[in-house]
Amino acid sequence: MTRTPTGRLLRVATGHDLVLTRTFRAHAEDVWASITEPERTARWFGPWEGEAGPGRTIKVQMAYEEQQPWMEARIEACEPPMRLAVTTIDEHGRWRLELRLSEVDGVTELKLVHHLRSTEAVGEIGPGWEYYLDMLVASRAGAPLPEFDSYYPSMKPYFDRLGATARDGAMS
């Protein structure tokens, strides 16, 4: 199945934000549970363990990656059910991420924001986030989980163009 990339790259004071959005016919509290409760995150990203809370570090397993690695995630902000900010640390370095939720009339919009210092690897990063957010959508719907091959390498040129445009100084 061919997937269409949805990510946007926005210039911000500290670099660029890669922003991906998904919409759910559900209350924000329910979507929040899907992104914060370990038994629910296990369905689309991976389980986590530890004592969660702002300023604390948990361990998260990337269950849908080769070798299912574990990484640390420091919780920078937790404002249920509207905002979760984490910094992840793994063999690829340190990533600053935010999940922002907003609800209107029982419809919740989820924005994943990856704060980037450089746009160099956006061609690899973007397709991965598209995949994981569609995994979330499928897990909530009880639908079959998508295959990563539907995202990468087919989406790489789209995200590479976003990164090149950003490096050339144009706004995306």
Rank of each mutant, 00 (worst) to 15 (best):
Thr57Phe: 03
Gly53Thr: 08
Val104Trp: 13
Phe159Pro: 01
Ser139Ala: 15
Glu66Gln: 14
Arg96Tyr: 09
Arg140Tyr: 00
Arg43Leu: 15
Thr108His: 04
Arg40Tyr: 01
Val113Met: 06
Trp95Gly: 06
Arg94Met: 12
Ile58His: 09
His16Met: 04
Ala138Asp: 01
Gly55Arg: 10
Glu124Ala: 08
Leu136Cys: 03
Phe45Pro: 00
Met171Ala: 15
Pro127Trp: 08
Thr119Cys: 10
Tyr131Gly: 02
Ala26Glu: 11
Gly50His: 07
Arg140Ser: 04
Thr88Ala: 06
Glu29Val: 11
Trp129Ala: 05
Glu49Asp: 10
Pro47Arg: 05
Tyr64Glu: 10
Arg140Thr: 04
Arg94Pro: 02
Arg83Gly: 04
Met155Ile: 05
Ser150Tyr: 03
Leu133Trp: 00
Thr4Leu: 13
Ser102Leu: 05
Glu147Val: 13
Ala28Ile: 02
Tyr132Thr: 05
Glu29Gln: 13
Trp129Cys: 03
Arg161Pro: 00
Ala138Tyr: 02
Leu84Cys: 06
Arg25Thr: 12
Pro127Gln: 06
Met1Ser: 15
Arg8Ser: 03
Glu65Thr: 03
Arg11Pro: 04
Val31Ser: 01
His114Met: 07
Gly55Lys: 09
Gln61Gly: 03
Phe148Thr: 01
Val137Phe: 02
Gly123Leu: 02
Asp160Phe: 10
Thr57Arg: 08
Met135Pro: 00
Gly93Met: 08
Pro38Tyr: 08
Ala138Leu: 04
Ala141Tyr: 01
Ala85Val: 13
Glu49Met: 08
Asp90Leu: 04
Thr23Leu: 06
Thr14Asp: 15
His115Lys: 06
Arg22Glu: 05
Val113Cys: 09
Gly142His: 06
Tyr132Ile: 07
His92Gln: 14
Asp30Met: 05
Val12Arg: 15
Arg22Leu: 01
Pro5Asn: 08
Arg161Asn: 09
Pro5Tyr: 07
Ile35Val: 15
Gly15His: 06
Gly55Asn: 12
His27Lys: 12
Glu51Ala: 10
Pro127Ala: 09
Pro69His: 13
Arg11Leu: 09
Glu120Ser: 12
Trp129Ile: 00
Trp48Gly: 09
Arg22Pro: 00
Ser172His: 11
Tyr152Arg: 11
Glu147Ile: 11
Pro80Ser: 07
Ala13Cys: 01
Val122Arg: 05
Ser150Arg: 11
Gly163Asp: 02
Lys59Gly: 10
Thr165Leu: 10
Val31Glu: 09
Gly126Arg: 07
Ala28Thr: 04
Asp30Glu: 15
Ala73Tyr: 07
Ser139Lys: 01
Thr165Tyr: 02
Tyr131Asn: 05
Gly106Asp: 10
Leu110Asn: 02
Ser34Met: 12
Asp134Glu: 07
Pro127Gly: 07
Gly106Val: 08
Arg8Ala: 03
Arg43Gln: 15
Ala166Lys: 09
Gly106Cys: 10
Glu66Ala: 14
Glu109Arg: 11
Phe148Ile: 03
Ile75Cys: 04
Arg3Val: 15
Arg56Ala: 12
Arg25Lys: 11
Glu37Asp: 13
Tyr151Asn: 00
Met62Phe: 00
Pro69Asn: 11
Arg96Pro: 08
Glu120Gln: 15
Glu130Pro: 00
Asp90Ala: 06
Glu79Ala: 13
Thr88Val: 02
Leu84His: 10
Glu76Trp: 00
Ala121Ile: 00
Pro5Val: 05
Ala73Glu: 09
Leu99Asp: 00
Arg43Ala: 15
Leu145Phe: 10
Pro157Glu: 06
Phe45Met: 14
